[in-house]
């Protein structure tokens, strides 16, 4: 590890952070954005993942080569578990909210409407 590697990682992280900030600040405070909200969220998520990879490589020195590979293996396993916890919670609770809307009659009507189900 050299200070050059740290500075490379820092500059990359800095530009990723500034890009994400400018995109959102431009869309909310300055005026419109050429991207739709859905795309903007996808871009911000991608920039965040890029920054996690950059900092993992240059700051935490994660690598698949040699003995440090062990720390990467442990981290990948934990990331899979974290993804299951986060993704699973949001998925299950979203479905719960969807099916627990107030008023039984209204729920049935709304779900039928959303799912395009028609009864005679």
């Amino acid at each position: 590890m050299t200070s050059k590697a740290y500075l490379t990682g820092f500059m990359m992280s800095l530009s990723l952070t500034v890009t994400a900030f400018i995109l959102v600040y431009g869309a909310t405070s300055v005026g419109g954005s050429p991207l739709s909200q859905g795309w903007l969220i996808a871009v911000i998520a991608s920039l965040a993942v890029c920054q996690l990879v950059v900092q993992g490589m240059y700051f935490l020195h994660l690598s698949s080569k040699g003995k440090p590979g062990r720390s990467l293996q442990i981290m990948l396993f934990v990331l899979v578990m974290a993804a299951i916890v986060v993704g699973g919670s949001i998925w299950v609770m979203h479905n719960l909210n969807y099916r627990m809307m107030p008023g039984e009659q209204k729920v049935t009507e709304t779900i039928q409407d959303k799912e395009n189900i028609h009864h005679h």
Binding site: A20, F21, I44, Q55, G56, L60
Partner: peptide, 24 residues
């Protein structure tokens, strides 16, 4: 230094998910 880098990694997630996406 590992601990401190790790906290910055977590902050990147908080900045992106809570603040940037929250403002949108």
């Amino acid at each position: 230094s590992l601990f401190w880098h790790f906290l910055d990694l977590v902050w990147v997630c908080i900045f992106s998910i809570v603040y940037l996406m929250g403002v949108l």
